[in-house]
Design a protein around this nucleic acid. Structure first.
Lengths: 201, 201
DNA sequence: CCGCATACTGTATAAATTTACAGTATGTTA
DNA sequence: TAACATACTGTAAATTTATACAGTATGCGG
């Protein structure tokens, strides 16, 4: 997307706000009135500029035909990743099951998807079987973070720790054993846990 | 809101879906086309009926002037209720701190607000200190449900149980004692827990 | 200095959209 | 059984809205 001028950014912000407030995009006349233009055409040309720069999409010949990226279609929200099959990328289409209308930016850093946790290995961290773990995609992790790790074919959620040369994946449940990953083993960090969502208690 | 007919509910559902999909409410013609009406007026009259019953609001003389309740303004999302002061209703304005953009209907039954949990008394139910409990307002609870209860001045989250005459509020942590509430004691059930949200792990 | 993008005013028109009115048919309520 | 809501078809305005065209002014890169 090409860079916007200050004025164009102001106008885009107003359109966002107004769409959120009223539940529908504004007309050219409404835009002009709100921004203080005496000519409707000023609004039209700003919209053209924004569309040219890819900041919005205009639907020709349609009332209030302004599309804000992410606003329409199923672009917002977080997908729940289901069972991950062996050897396949975690975000493959087939694994996406349900989409929940949650703002990814609610988490820090922002979440990329939700992973259904199975098993009790993280019980004492308050992550139970069936919980949805909000995951931020990342190929690396820092000490003590909760990570989504792939060991060969299996995807697991554990606490990350590095000791000497080896990486330890620590469960939060005394009934489970830590997993020691030696250099050369097939360990891939898929992401870090940034939150938990439980539907039903 | 007056009760809708099956057909009206179908139409309302379609309007919701379409508004979500396209980012703006449909026109009468679009509605008619989608529902298979050969007359635009069929759409008009359905909208009138829905408006009359309070299911939508129509903005006269305005293109795509259909407002879905909760869609406009800041009506969506869930408020986080902070510290609840003695004797005050839990949803008093002063307690509302942050609003999170989460669909309340994601929970069953739908959540009315989020309550910041303090203390470790529900640890073994996977509800930790600082977690946000999604609460459905309800003056009563069933056996085994997690409830938000008010005992005199204090608001507490516990598992609900009824034994003979008394109500037992059970913690999920052996370090805590159950609370026995005898008939005549000041117990108010504020709501039931319908989910958990943890920002950060 | 020229061409071009930005940032507007002002006018006009075609097309999209709302909305009123005239019907038909069916089922429900008083 | 009459009144009324539901659920449509069909036609016709009136109004909203998008969009083209003609200008003015400013700043920027070549």
């Amino acid at each position: 997307m090409l860079s916007l001028t200050d004025r164009q950014r102001q106008i885009l912000d107003w359109i966002r706000q107004e769409t959120e407030r009223s539940g529908r995009p504004p007309t050219r006349a409404e835009l002009a009135a709100a921004l203080g233009f005496r000519s409707i055409n000023a609004a039209e040309e700003h919209l053209r500029a924004l569309a040219r720069k890819g900041a919005i999409r205009l639907i020709p010949g349609s009332a209030r035909g302004i599309q804000l990226p992410g606003e329409a279609a199923g672009e917002t929200g977080l997908w729940v990743v289901g069972r991950v099959a062996a050897g396949q990328p975690i975000l493959a289409r087939e694994h996406l099951t349900v989409r929940h209308p949650i703002d990814p930016r609610m988490f820090r850093p922002a979440a990329d998807y939700l992973l259904t946790v199975s098993g009790e290995s993280m019980r004492d961290a308050g992550i139970l079987d069936g919980d949805l773990l909000a995951v931020h995609k990342s190929p690396e992790a820092r000490e003590g973070q909760i990570v989504v790790a792939r060991l060969g074919d299996e995807v697991t959620v554990k606490r990350f720790s590095r000791r000497q040369d080896a990486v330890w994946l620590l469960p939060e449940n005394p009934a489970y054993q830590p997993i020691v990953v030696h250099p050369g083993d097939e360990l891939v960090i898929e992401g870090i846990g940034v939150g938990v969502l439980r539907l039903g208690t």
